[in-house]
Amino acid sequence: MFGVLGIVLTLVMVFGGYALSGGKMGVILHALPFEMMIIGGAAVGSYILSNSGAVLKHTGPALVRAFKGPVWQAGDHEDLLCLMFQLLRLARSNPVELEEHIENPESSEIFKIYPRILAHHEAVSIIADTLRSTSLNYDDPYQVEDVLGKRIALIREEQMHVPHALQSMADALPALGIVAAVLGVIKTMGSIDKPPEVLGEMIGSALVGTFLGVFLAYGLVAPLAQRLGDVCKHDMSFFDVIKSVMVASLHQHATNLCVEVGRQSAPEDVRPSFVTLENALRDIKRAA
């Protein structure tokens, strides 16, 4: 919602200010299709050339994600902490029964309570793999923390591929605008014998290329890349919560304390309150 509002506001202010100052929109509208073909086509072509198939495949969904916002909300972090509480409590009371849940999460009655988490393969995989490792006596807190840190860093790097690619495109757009402008000047020089009013219009059309390259770079693509990067970083905090709870558990802290460590590691805007989480855990204990 705010992304669309930002784009609309940018377009209205730029072109509205131009029109109100006496600028002729006809010059821009006449040159726009051709300049967009040159600049936009070159930008897309270079984007395809410089990125892998995986990045290209994820670009569309990533752009949608930039407008929709983070995947994980406050309720999801509360659900995650409740899920971790149930799994850790089971791991300490009945490790054999825990194996059924981590080997087949899709059929686990515990995981089924939290369908949004269950539907996220990477989150479930991290939880199950870490619990499986600890059940096999790979339970050194510092080693597990290091392994989890490297795995999460790898996910973070993959998540940031599209934002970085978009930022590279934004960096290239002003230069592509100059290319379009130079082509416009070449065209104008080929018509140097035309009347001044014709030459003026042709020069104006050429300058539209420079304007368009800079405008697309700093008015649309770069902010979009920044927004997508922020969304990716925000969602990555979900995995940091998992790591915090797991490491605290390996230090043999009480299960409630492990969950509280995870709660405090969540970003403030999605962090459930202590009272809310405590009530949720109390309900789980009553239902057990």
Rank of each mutant, 00 (worst) to 15 (best):
R227A: 03
S244G: 13
L228I: 04
G219E: 03
D230Q: 15
V221T: 05
F238K: 14
V214D: 06
A217Y: 06
V241P: 12
Q226C: 08
M236R: 09
I242N: 09
D235T: 00
C232V: 13
S237C: 15
F215I: 02
A248K: 11
V241Y: 14
C232I: 06
F238R: 11
M246R: 07
F211T: 06
I242S: 00
D235N: 00
F215T: 02
D235A: 00
G229D: 15
L212F: 08
V214A: 11
K243C: 12
K233F: 04
V231M: 14
L224D: 03
M246Y: 08
D240T: 02
L212I: 07
C232K: 14
V245G: 11
M236K: 08
Q226H: 13
L212T: 10
F211G: 04
L220P: 02
F239G: 01
F238V: 10
A222I: 03
F238Q: 10
F238E: 04
F238L: 10
D235S: 06
V241I: 12
V221H: 01
V231P: 08
G219H: 07
F239D: 06
L228G: 04
Y218D: 07
C232N: 13
L220R: 04
S244A: 15
G219K: 09
F215H: 01
G213M: 01
F238Y: 13
R227H: 00
A225M: 06
D230M: 15
G213K: 02
R227S: 06
V221K: 02
Q226S: 12
V247A: 09
A217C: 05
K243R: 15
R227L: 06
K233H: 14
G213S: 02
R227F: 01
Y218F: 14
G213A: 08
F215Y: 11
D230Y: 12
M236F: 09
F239I: 07
V247S: 01
A225L: 08
V221Y: 00
Y218A: 04
L224V: 05
C232Q: 12
F211S: 03
S244V: 11
S237N: 15
L212Q: 05
M246Q: 12
G213I: 02
V221C: 01
M246V: 14
D230H: 13
D240F: 00
D230K: 14
F239M: 10
S244E: 08
I242A: 01
D230S: 15
S244F: 06
G219T: 05
F211D: 07
I242K: 06
A222F: 01
I242F: 09
P223S: 02
A225V: 07
V214H: 07
L228R: 06
S244R: 13
P223G: 11
M236L: 13
K243M: 10
S244N: 12
D240I: 01
L228H: 04
V214R: 10
L228A: 00
V245K: 13
R227Y: 02
V245E: 11
Q226N: 15
Q226E: 15
F239S: 08
L220Q: 11
D230G: 14
V241H: 10
A248M: 11
A217L: 00
Y218I: 05
V231D: 04
D235H: 00
Q226P: 02
K233D: 15
I242W: 00
D235Y: 00
P223A: 10
M246A: 14
V245I: 12
V241E: 10
F239L: 15
A225C: 04
R227D: 00
A248H: 07
C232L: 13
Y218E: 08
V231Y: 03
